[in-house]
Each structure stands twice: as C-alpha cells, then as structure tokens.
Design a protein around this nucleic acid. Sequence first.
DNA 1: GTCCTAATAGACTTATAAGGCTTTAAACTA
DNA 2: TAGTTTAAAGCCTTATAAGTCTATTAGGAC
Lengths: 132, 132
Amino acid sequence: MLLTRASEYALLSLDVIRKSDSPIGTEQLATELSIPKSFLAKILQSLAKQGILESRKGAHGGFILIKDTTDISVNDIIFAAEGKSPVVFDCTSYANTCPNGTIGTCSISPFLHNFQSKIDGFLNGLMLSDIL
Amino acid sequence: MLLTRASEYALLSLDVIRKSDSPIGTEQLATELSIPKSFLAKILQSLAKQGILESRKGAHGGFILIKDTTDISVNDIIFAAEGKSPVVFDCTSYANTCPNGTIGTCSISPFLHNFQSKIDGFLNGLMLSDIL
DNA sequence: GTCCTAATAGACTTATAAGGCTTTAAACTA
DNA sequence: TAGTTTAAAGCCTTATAAGTCTATTAGGAC
C-alpha cells in the first residue's frame, strides 16, 4: 500500500481540527474518530513539527490549524504523517542488493521515475481544501 | 511503498525473457539478474498462471513469453507478481477497525478513490512495450 | 501549588515482505 | 525404461515495517 494508517488518521484529524477555533486535544480527537490515542499523539506531534498544526500544552491545550487549507498540500500532510513522501519503489533502500548494482539505471528505471513523478505531481498540486 | 520486489523482479525477468526465442530457466535468470532463485521461481510461476508466460518442464525447459508485449499491461504484470493490483490505501482490509464503521463513506474516501483511479488508469493504459 | 494536557521515549505486538529449503511431479533425452 | 532436467508446491526462517501501549517528563491554566 502506498499510504499507511498514519496518513489516514492525519487527514481525518485535520478535517475535524480545521472546523474548530479553539484547540482540540488528542483525547477528544481519538474518541471522536475512534482511533488509538497513543498512535494519534505521535502523528499530531509530527504535523506540529512540520508547521501544519500548533500545539498548546496545559489545560485547554491541544492542536489548532495555523495555515489556510489552501496552503497545505496533501503531500505535505503525508510527508509529515509518515516521515517521508509516498514512494512507488525505493531502489535506494535496496542499494546493497540491487541486481548488478545498476541502481537507477536498470531497464525499469525510466518507468519507475515516470510513475513516481506522476504521483508527486498529483499530490503536490492537490491542496487540503480540494479534498475536504 | 506501492510496489514490492516481486514486481521489480517480474519486470526485470520479462525484459530478459522477451528477447529470447527459446525457454529460459529459473536458474539462468536468477544468475543473470543476481536475484534469489527460490523467490524468483514463485514469481515466474504466478506469471505463468496468469497466462503471461508459458512454462515448460524437462530438459531445455523454462519460461517463454506467449503474448505480444503490446497486449500485456503493466498492471497485469504487477497483479500477477504480487497477487493483487497496487492499492493506495485498502480500507477494506481495515474494515473491523474503520472509524465509525463508515467504510468507503468517510471524509477522505472521495480523495482516496480519485487517487486510486488515477493510478489504475495509468497502469492499465501502460503496456509492457511502452516501458521496455 | 495543583491539576490538566502535550511531549518524549521506549517496549511490545502484529503483519508483511523476503528469502531459503525440501519434496514432489512432470517432461524431455537417450 | 532409466536417468536427467526443470517446474510446482509447501513449509519454515528471518528482517522489516506498522501499529499499539505504558510510563515519564515538561509546560501552561487556574
């Protein structure tokens, strides 16, 4: 699968958070979306680190959106949630076992790059406001 | 990752097999491409079951291509190699834990379906002859 | 100061991918 | 027919990623 649950949870969370003016806590989000609190906490943390959300500690703390939904691409969200952009097939992670060591230059490389750029283009051009 | 090594090996193998008139054995292919023989054998078997290759037992046996490369889509190959078509995010495999049980009807479903159909269209329209 | 909530870190469980090994069955060769 | 070659099939091990849980630490609100 191209995406993991991290992306699913991130997108579902952002759909709730964007509708609120005040911060929403992990606890509340987890309950409302019926998803594990601990896992969600890590994802929200990552979104905050990437500047998509702002986190507020203490009582009445939680997470709020600090960008306009037209300024956040779906790729940004996935990257933050998963720690990397979605990839078709990562040759580099197999570098040591790549047949003949022809990494990036084998017979299927052109296809992989073409495919990858199609996906990148799609996700970078798609804004959060387009899908929610 | 969207694709696994099974697809990589399948495509690399087909690139070799298509150039030969006589059957090529698993042993020879595995050596030539520097990939594990036992794993490759399973992949080739799957390709044969899907009617992409024909297998011949006995001396001088092996695998040959029985279709024109313009009649095999990349999606066919991936499906055969991996046992399923590449999927962006498989909600159905998470059916039991889908938030609110709103499978296929949640706020991100339209995005997922749109994304998936883009990929399906690309891979179904792309023939083996286009990429090798 | 005390309660509330996020941040951080780590252990743990489960699922999947990847590869290996062995046995069986089929087909060709001589 | 006997022997060789090759695919077919199943089971097993290992590596890695995904997902979950628990406990501790840090910081803000009242």
